[in-house]
Amino acid sequence: MTILPTFEILGFPVSLPILIISLLAVVIIPIVLGRLLASGSKSGPSSVILFAGPRDAGKTSLLLYLQEKTLIPTQTSTAPATVKLFPLALSPADSQDEGSSTKPFHIKDTPGHPKLRSTAIDTIVQPTESCIGVIYVLDSAVLSTQARITDTAEYLYELLLAIQKRYAILSESATSTEPIPLLIACNKNDLFTALPSTKIGNLLQTELSRMKETKRKGLLNAGAGENDDEDLDRVLGDETSDKITWEGLKEFGVEVSVQSGSVKSGTVDGWTSWMSACLDA
């Protein structure tokens, strides 16, 4: 039997293996604990409804309206914000009706500036992040100019593409997946120049179709084919035709509905009931 070297620490004799083991435990346990805690917190909030849309459309205002029931001034957002709400926030301000469920949900408000749109897109395509519905807030009063329609439709196209991708990923893992609901919230319909929601819906479908056509005809992306990145050559909706309709998109995992409203005049009932339906589903 070999005699292990022993040390004396604070008057107690300690053998080498015990010393090593205890030292290892001291080093490893916090690391393991930390990892466990980190992975636990990484899953993020549950039941998230995502707000997206071009800037100045009223996403943050809508969020604050749901929170506070009043109109609160906002400026261009530069960072996303996730807010925890209770279903009670979706019922009209005057009613004291207790909602069917009291489970809280989250709203993630994303910036609308073109350079920051990746926040919303990334959230959607990340299957580990919760996203039970998307509200695309747009300014229905500015859609009379072609440039704004293009801008609005372009972001919507990217979002739809992202939702389609999420749906594809989810349906691979699960046997049956429900399409992800998307509400096009035509805000600011209190303004004189605002277009009605049906008109906006048609405008956007035509514009999306045109976009799909030019994207198909357009040049290849740099780096296409070098690495097998599947989202370089993905098309929105049906591969055989350039036409995009809301009905046609359902097959690809997006359930689109269009509703008018106005944060300023407080007519958000249509949107809140859509959100309630989202939560119940």
Binding site: P114, R117, T150, D151, M211, K215
Partner: peptide, 18 residues
């Protein structure tokens, strides 16, 4: 990414069509 992301649409074909 923020620097390279364009702020306007760069779809030349669509603009020509419009």
């Amino acid at each position: 990414r923020k620097i390279l992301t364009p702020t306007t649409s760069l779809d030349l074909l669509r603009e020509i069509g419009q």
